[in-house]
């Protein structure tokens, strides 16, 4: 990847992370851990990959994204705000009464392609969108992001079977493999592993990538682009809470908002990172 583009993406990703912290801090609730682990992925998709238009969010030929792991809405909202779908100010009223930004993604928010949050459902909806694209011979791609814990839901595998059967090669499912879910490590709760082997067995083309390295991300999506006749699953090896030192790889940050002190520390760390990148 071109180093200037890479630096730009890294800076955007820091801003996205600041938005996540801003949102969850002001909401006094929400899910920062899994939001931070997909910040780089969403930054890449919305900055580089996806054909979307903030001035026309429902544009027919747009690429679609269904955040199947809907609890990480703060990451999606932060990226959409960064992209200009709505003012960044909205992040401060996340989860408040009367706010635009609901606790989980809602289809009525500009740029949000589907309401989601009940795990296992988004991937099926993404299959339906991809199927519609096939019926219409449309060029758009459909992306869906799942949690690794989410792969414990049976519906994920019903959808995996469907996507392969209908050869939905316009569908890319990214599994955020940060290894943690509410009750602990995914391997200790009720292991969905090996996730890569499972998707391969279901007839998907499987790619693994480093979720926090834009070169690796680019490589994975370039490979995905070349696949035909099969849906693509990208298993991203990620760190829950990535980018905020005290949140990294800590299950306790799955669904806890930072308090004022933690907010200040997180923002200071992210600001420092941004300054470093600007050098």
């Amino acid at each position: 990847m071109d180093s200037t583009i890479k630096k730009q993406l890294e800076m955007t990703a820091v801003n996205v992370r600041m938005g996540i912290i801003e949102g969850t801090f002001n909401a006094k609730s929400g899910h920062p851990g899994g939001s931070l682990s997909i910040a780089d992925l969403l930054t890449y998709l919305y900055s580089v990959k996806m054909n979307v238009n903030p001035a026309d969010p429902d544009m027919k030929e747009r690429d679609r994204l269904v955040l199947s792991k809907g609890h990480t809405a703060p990451a999606l909202y932060s990226v959409l705000a960064e992209k200009g779908f709505f003012p960044k100010e909205e992040l401060k009223s996340l989860r408040h009464i009367g706010a635009l930004l609901q606790g989980h993604p809602c289809i009525h928010i500009p740029g949000v392609d589907m309401s989601s949050g009940s795990l296992g459902q988004g991937i099926s909806v993404a299959c339906g969108m991809a199927l519609a694209g096939k019926i219409d011979n449309a060029d758009y791609k459909v992306y869906t992001i799942l949690g690794d814990g989410e792969c414990e839901e049976g519906q994920v595998w019903e959808a995996a079977m469907f996507a392969a059967h209908y050869q939905l090669d316009n569908l890319v499912a990214i599994v955020d493999n940060n290894g943690l879910q509410i009750d602990g490590k995914i391997t200790e709760v009720c292991s969905p592993e090996p996730i890569t082997d499972k998707f391969a067995a279901f007839g998907w083309h499987v790619i693994t990538m480093d979720a926090h390295d834009f070169d690796s991300i680019e490589k994975a999506f370039d490979e995905a682009e070349k696949i035909s006749g099969k849906p693509v699953a990208i298993i991203q090896k990620s760190v829950k809470g990535k980018g905020v030192s005290f949140m990294e790889d800590k299950v306790s940050w799955h669904g806890t908002a930072p308090n004022k002190e933690q907010y200040d520390q997180a923002m200071a760390e992210l600001s420092a990172r941004l300054e470093e990148l600007k050098k």
């Binding site: 289809i107 099926s124 339906g128 199927l131 519609a132």
Partner: peptide
């Protein structure tokens, strides 16, 4: 060409229908 069997997977079928509807179809 407009009929899609989802197999014995009703949960997925409802989600697929939602995605089709969100993309302009009447499923």
């Amino acid at each position: 060409e407009r009929f899609f069997d989802c197999g014995i997977a009703e949960a997925d079928m409802m989600g697929v229908a939602a995605g089709l509807a969100a993309s302009g179809k009447i499923p």
